[in-house]
């Protein structure tokens, strides 16, 4: 498996966590979220995000409202729901746990590798 492929797999795993994190900082419409994620190199193309947002909305973690745009069609503003916040907190905890575990394993099994 190539590095690109591995990275894509890792991204897939944490993408949901990232969208929720972005929205926990304030309401945003799809393009905002995209530019955040793209800046962090989490996604390559915008099309990835739309199905994800719809799924998260259907799961009750997100909500949205329509807002008029100065140019183009009205925009869908997403906001995180209470359930979503709860889920995000759970994810935060698991993420922390995961990172610690991974670091631990790396330190034990690859002594030559410097960890930061």
């Amino acid at each position: 498996m190539s590095v690109d492929n591995a990275k894509a797999q890792m991204r897939k795993g944490v993408l949901e966590y990232c969208t929720l994190s972005v929205l926990s900082g304030g309401d945003a419409y799809a393009s905002d979220i995209i530019s955040h994620l793209r800046g962090a190199r989490m996604i390559v193309v915008e099309g990835t995000l739309y199905p994800l947002l719809t799924r998260q909305k259907n799961a009750g973690w997100l909500d949205y409202r329509w807002e008029e745009s100065q140019q183009g069609p009205p925009r869908k503003y997403y906001s995180i729901t209470d359930r979503g916040r709860q889920f995000l907190a759970d994810l935060d905890a698991s993420w922390q746990e995961l990172v610690e575990t991974v670091n631990e394993i790396r330190q034990i099994h690859s002594p030559n590798t410097e960890t930061t």
């Binding site: 894509a8 795993g13 993408l15 193309v45 990835t48």
Partner: peptide, 17 residues
């Protein structure tokens, strides 16, 4: 299409696709 990605790009990028 570049911005939004092709179907393949989207499949490759999405979780649990």
């Amino acid at each position: 299409i570049d911005t939004l990605g092709t179907v393949r790009d989207i499949i490759g990028d999405s979780p649990d696709a």
